[in-house]
């Protein structure tokens, strides 16, 4: 990593080839970054550990027993084949961007990186894109990376009206047949309780859920100066407002919203990671992995 400059999202995401973007970002920092915490029957030897009752006696290293007169069991790098689903919010609110890159572009890049990273670990990767409903769904299977990247390249236009988490996430939970990791990329413009209820459905089958809360910096700072009529991207509603006047209250409300989400999701052991579109993708991935314990998958 040392010596390689971080890539500005506004620049790297101008590259249309998501595969290239994902390789550039992931390969740049993943090498040596993490390994699977699962060690088991694999071709790659990892270490020895003392034998304990219940271990498969076929894994006892007899040669070592001959030298040490003690039982040791061989351990190998795990052969991971977990299910990894990326749920991407493509509602109209995600089309906002003040830093040269929209939240949707940023989330799409992030999704590509995650898919690439999971695929490189032999996980079964799937993708779901939704607004109020599921717009595209690629179930987690092995060797689907190309299809996922193609889908990310051609995100369909969202339906008019506000986005909603409950319906699409509920259906995704119903469709999943085994536990795995679900990564939700969304701006989460819903009441915390509603959002958490929708996310909780994903845990139904025991899946581990990670929420990547994607926000534009302007959504947190509200930096506008001039008195303006603001237009809601999802509903088209117009609200005149004096930014200088409402800035403080707005900031307080959105921070409270974020804090509320984090608290409620944490209570359900759902990891909440806030990601601003001005943050380089590598940094976002690193924070994401570190927050997951440094060795979490992917």
């Amino acid at each position: 990593m040392r010596g390689r400059p971080l890539l500005d999202p506004a620049v790297v995401l101008q590259v249309k080839d998501l595969s290239f973007v994902a390789r550039s970002v992931v390969d740049g920092f993943v090498a040596g970054q993490h390994k699977s915490r699962h060690r088991g029957a694999s071709v790659d030897f990892a270490e020895h550990r003392p034998y304990s009752a219940g271990d498969d006696i076929r894994r006892i290293d007899w040669r070592l027993f001959a030298r040490t007169d003690r039982y040791f069991v061989k351990q190998f790098e795990a052969d991971s084949n977990a299910s990894f689903l990326i749920a991407l919010d493509i509602s109209k609110s995600m089309r906002f961007g003040s830093t040269g890159v929209t939240k949707l572009d940023y989330a799409r890049g992030l999704a590509a990186c995650l898919a690439y990273l999971a695929n490189s670990q032999k996980d079964r990767v799937g993708l779901m894109m939704f607004d109020r409903e599921i717009r595209e769904f690629i179930p987690p299977r092995g060797g689907r990376l190309e299809a996922i990247l193609r889908a990310l390249d051609a995100i369909p236009d969202p339906e008019s009206g506000p986005g909603a988490l409950a319906l699409p996430l509920g259906r995704a939970a119903e469709a999943s047949r085994r536990a795995g990791v679900v990564v939700l990329l969304s701006d989460l413009y819903e009441e915390p309780e509603t959002a958490v209820d929708a996310i909780r459905a994903l845990q139904y089958r025991g899946s581990e859920v990670v929420v990547l809360h994607v926000l534009d910096p302007a959504e947190r700072t509200f930096p506008f100066e001039d008195v303006s009529t603001f237009e809601d991207l999802e509903t088209g509603e117009l609200v005149p407002a004096d930014p200088e006047k409402i800035r403080a209250e707005y900031r307080a409300l959105i921070e409270a919203h974020i804090a509320g989400l984090r608290e409620k999701l944490g209570r359900d052991r759902v990891q909440h990671v806030l990601m601003e579109t001005s943050t380089p993708l590598e940094t976002a991935l690193r924070h994401f992995l570190r927050d997951r314990g440094g060795a979490a998958r992917p």
Partner: peptide
């Protein structure tokens, strides 16, 4: 500036709506 007012898109106004309008008039 008046012209600008008509075209300021924003992802969601769920928080802006909660702030009273009276401040704008006073301003």
């Amino acid at each position: 500036m008046r012209e600008r007012r008509t075209s300021q898109p924003f992802p969601s106004l769920m928080f802006v709506r909660r702030i009273p309008h009276k401040s704008l008039r006073r301003r």
